[in-house]
């Protein structure tokens, strides 16, 4: 009886071990979810090899998993306005909710070279508000290695076809290129010393140019003269900046007054002003004519012509008048009596 009991216990233990292993397998396969989680959706046009159950990671730390993948087609989502072919629904542990901000980036990447693909989240800047989990986010599609290889293969195929169909031209081109290289080699060999000299000259020129640039910089950029000019210009600018506002204010006031005066002039006054200006113009014309006459008389007088001219300009008359005045001073009676 005891032996039978022992057998029962041993068999029962083994069966329990098997059942426990099966339960563990089912739990592991289904993903053990012990904490609170929140749902998010990320749109991709092509999420690559991402599959349901794939991990979701932030900075390499697993924070959740892909719940399911939904093929939506090309119709745009009325909520986002985007047309994404695939919407990936993910479940993320609730304790990571405060770490995902509005500028977070969602992309599919691979663990290792050929490892499993997972959804990585760049949580974004802490200065940004938290992400709206009710709104589907736009994911960054993984690079299409297959597409790249297909296009590279097409390009390679075109290249090979072009090479095969133009084999003669390519041969000629290679021959020409070889000839050019051969000639260049001979040219270099024949003019080695001259090329050395040329290089030395170029080197010297470069050094001179460098010294010139340095001198110019010291003189015209870093020199005291430039500094003074700049200081003066700054002073002038400061003065202008200081005095310009009052000047502008005065000019504006003067303009306002002129406008005010102009606005106060009536049409009749304007006609009078025009008539006055016309009279002034006439007077000025006449004055100019009189000045011309005066100038002609003056010229006539200066040339000693006429009575006044002879009186003013003839020395003999002057001498006679002086003699006569002197004689009259000595002989005043000649005013009244003639010899």
């Amino acid at each position: 009886m005891a032996a039978e009991r022992a057998i029962e216990v041993k068999v029962g233990l083994l069966v329990l071990v098997g059942v426990a292993l099966l339960a563990a397998l089912v739990l592991v396969m289904g993903g053990i979810q012990l904490g609170q989680r929140f749902a998010m959706a990320v749109d991709f046009n092509n999420p690559g090899g991402l599959q349901s159950g794939a991990p979701v990671k932030i900075a390499g730390v697993r924070v959740g998993s892909v719940d399911r993948m939904e093929f939506r087609g090309a119709a745009p989502d009325p909520r986002t306005g985007r047309a994404a072919l695939v919407r990936v629904h993910v479940m993320i542990d609730a304790r990571y909710r405060p770490e995902i901000h509005r500028d977070a980036a969602f992309y599919v990447t691979t663990q290792g070279v050929l490892g499993e693909q997972f959804l990585a989240i760049d949580p974004g800047s802490a200065a940004q508000p938290l992400i709206d989990t009710a709104q589907p986010q736009e994911g960054i599609d993984p690079p299409r290695i297959d597409l790249f290889l297909a296009r590279a293969y097409s390009l390679l195929d075109d290249t090979v076809t072009a090479l095969r169909s133009n084999r003669r031209q390519i041969g000629t081109m290679v021959d020409d290129l070889s000839g050019i290289l051969h000639e260049t080699h001979g040219l270099l060999a024949r003019n080695g010393s001259r090329i050395d000299t040329l290089i030395e000259n170029v080197d010297r020129t470069v050094r001179d140019a460098d010294a010139l640039v340095n001198g110019a910089r010291e003189r015209y950029v870093d020199g005291p003269q430039i500094r003074r000019i700049v200081n003066r210009a700054e002073s002038v600018l400061a003065t202008v900046e200081r005095d310009l506002p009052p000047l502008a204010h005065d000019a504006r006031a003067l303009t306002n007054r002129l406008n005010h005066i102009a606005e106060g002039v009536t049409d009749t006054q304007l006609e009078d002003l025009r008539a006055t200006l016309h009279d002034v113009r006439t007077l000025v014309g006449r004055a100019n004519s009189i000045a011309g006459d005066v100038q002609a008389v003056s010229t006539h007088v200066r040339s000693g012509q006429g009575t006044v001219g002879a009186l003013l300009m003839d020395d003999e008359i002057y001498d006679d008048l002086q003699e006569m005045v002197r004689d009259l001073k000595h002989n005043p009676w000649k005013f009244f009596w003639r010899e």
Binding site: V11, L14, V15, V17, G18, L21
Partner: peptide, 13 residues
């Protein structure tokens, strides 16, 4: 039938 299943779980582990 019973024990082969159990043993397979165990052996797989």
């Amino acid at each position: 039938v019973v024990m082969t299943g159990v043993l397979i779980f165990y052996a797989g582990a």
